[in-house]
Design a protein around this nucleic acid. Structure first.
Lengths: 232, 232
DNA sequence: CAGTGGTCTAGACCACTCC
DNA sequence: GAGTGGTCTAGACCACTGT
C-alpha cells in the first residue's frame, strides 16, 4: 500500500475509504484511523487525506469530531445534490422547444390571499405565467415580488421574459427555502395546464431572500406526470 | 484590504466574493480576477483562495475553466443539498413518536407488476410497511429487494425493523437515483394512509445499486399534506 | 504556447473536546 | 492536558484549454 511511486490523489483516498466500508472492514458506527495515520500508511500528505475525508463527511458518509476522531456514519445516507435549473434549460435540455407566456401582471397587488412570508411587505407585485414544452403546458408559475427589495426597472413587466430569469440575473440571492408538495390542481390552474380538475399535481414553492429581506415567493405547479429527478 | 494582520480564512474570501456579486461589482457572466491576483490583493495564500472559489463553483455560483478563468455564473442558481433522513429521524426530530408496522412480506415475489428496474433480477423479495407519527399514518412504503445482491440473513423479515434501516447498515450503497412525483393515491394505499380515495399524495421513488448491481427499489407515498423541505 | 485552475507536499498553529 | 480535525502558508508541478 505504501509502495506506489506516483502520488495518491484525494479521490484515491476516497476510493480506499469507500472500499473499506463496502467490504465491511469499517462498519457503520466504527472509528477509522486518524488523518495522520492514514497519511503515513497510505503514503501521502495529511492535507490530501483531510480533503478526502472532509468531503465524504459533507456527503454524509462519515462523521468527524475533533479529538473524537472520524467514524463511519451510523446510517451512511448519501446526500443528494439538487440542481435547480431554469425552467427554460430543463425543457431545452430534454430536446423540447421552450415557450413562455405571461398570463397576468399586477404591479401592486392587494394584500389578500398572500403567502404568509409576504405579510408586512408594503409593496408587492404579482406575476402569473405559463411555461410550455413543445407547445404543451409544462408548468404554471405564480410569483410575488417584493418591489421594495427589487425595484422594477425596464423589465417590460415580464411580458416576454420569465421573472425568474430576470431576478436571478438582477438580484443574485444569498439564501432561501424550497419545498415540494403534492396537491389537487386549483381550478384556474387546471385550465391553464389543460388537465382534469382534481388532478394531482407536483408543486415547488420557493422563497428567496437577500440578506434578511424577502425578495420573491414563487409557486410552480407542474403538469400531471411530472417527475423531479435527482442523483444520489 | 491588504492591511489586515490576522490571516484571512477561506470563508472570508467567500464573503468577499459574494459581496462583490451582490453589490453588482461582478455581474453574472463577468470574469473575476484569477486566483493568484486575488491572493495577492487580499493578502492570503492561493490555496485559500482556491478552496473558497472551488466551493462556490460547486454550489453553482461561479463557473471555472482552466486558462479561461473564473466567471460569475450567468444564472447563479444555488444548488440545494438534500438531506434524506431516515423516516424514523424525520419523525422523531419533529418531536413526534415513531412507530413501524409491517404490512406484508414475500420472500420471493412473482415477477409481475414490478418496477422496470427489477426486470431480469432472478430473486426478488417484497416488503410493504407503514410508518406512523404519533399513531397517525405518515408514509406508506413499498419495497423490492434483490435478494441475490443482499442475502437475507437473520433480519426477522422486517417484522420489527424498517427494511431501510436494515439495508443502510448492512449494504452501504454507492449510487442511486431518486425521483419525486405527485399522484392520486392508489386504492389500497389510501386505506392504509386513512385518506380519501383520489387524494393527491407526494411520492418518492428511490433506486439503490452497489457497484452495478441493483440492491433495492422503494416507493414512499406520504400522507396528504406532506411537504418536503429543503434549504438553499 | 502560455495562462489558468487543480492538486500535492511539508510544516505549522489553532480550536475543539474528550478524558 | 492531550489527541484530533480544521485550516493557512509557501512552493511546486501538472492538466487543460484558449489563442
Amino acid at each position: 500500500m505504501t509502495t506506489s511511486s506516483a502520488n495518491l490523489s484525494w479521490q484515491d483516498i476516497q476510493k480506499y475509504v469507500m472500499t473499506q466500508i463496502r467490504a465491511g472492514s469499517w462498519k457503520p458506527g466504527d472509528a477509522i484511523p486518524n488523518e495522520a495515520d492514514l497519511a503515513r500508511d497510505l503514503g501521502c500528505a495529511r492535507t490530501t487525506v483531510n480533503r478526502a475525508l472532509r468531503e465524504l463527511a459533507a456527503e454524509g458518509l462519515l462523521e468527524r469530531k475533533r479529538k473524537a476522531g472520524t467514524r463511519v456514519a451510523k446510517y451512511p445516507t448519501r446526500r443528494a445534490k439538487l440542481h435547480i435549473p431554469l425552467i427554460r434549460d430543463e425543457i431545452t435540455e430534454s430536446g423540447r422547444e421552450y415557450r413562455y407566456q405571461r398570463l397576468a401582471f399586477e404591479p401592486e397587488v392587494a394584500p389578500v390571499n398572500l403567502p404568509d412570508a409576504l405579510k408586512g411587505c408594503p409593496r408587492i407585485a404579482y406575476v402569473e405565467a405559463l411555461h410550455f414544452a413543445n407547445d404543451e403546458p409544462f408548468v404554471h408559475e405564480a410569483r410575488w415580488i417584493n418591489t421594495v427589495a427589487v425595484p422594477a426597472k425596464d423589465h417590460n413587466e415580464f411580458a416576454d421574459i420569465s421573472a425568474n430569469e430576470w431576478l436571478v440575473r438582477n438580484a443574485p440571492f444569498t439564501e432561501g427555502t424550497l419545498e415540494f408538495f403534492a396537491s389537487d390542481v386549483p381550478a384556474d390552474v387546471a385550465t391553464h395546464l389543460q388537465c382534469a380538475p382534481g388532478s394531482a399535481v407536483f408543486n415547488a414553492k420557493r422563497q428567496t431572500r437577500a440578506q434578511t429581506q424577502l425578495v420573491t415567493v414563487v409557486v410552480l405547479s407542474y403538469a400531471p406526470g411530472y417527475r423531479k429527478l435527482l442523483a444520489l
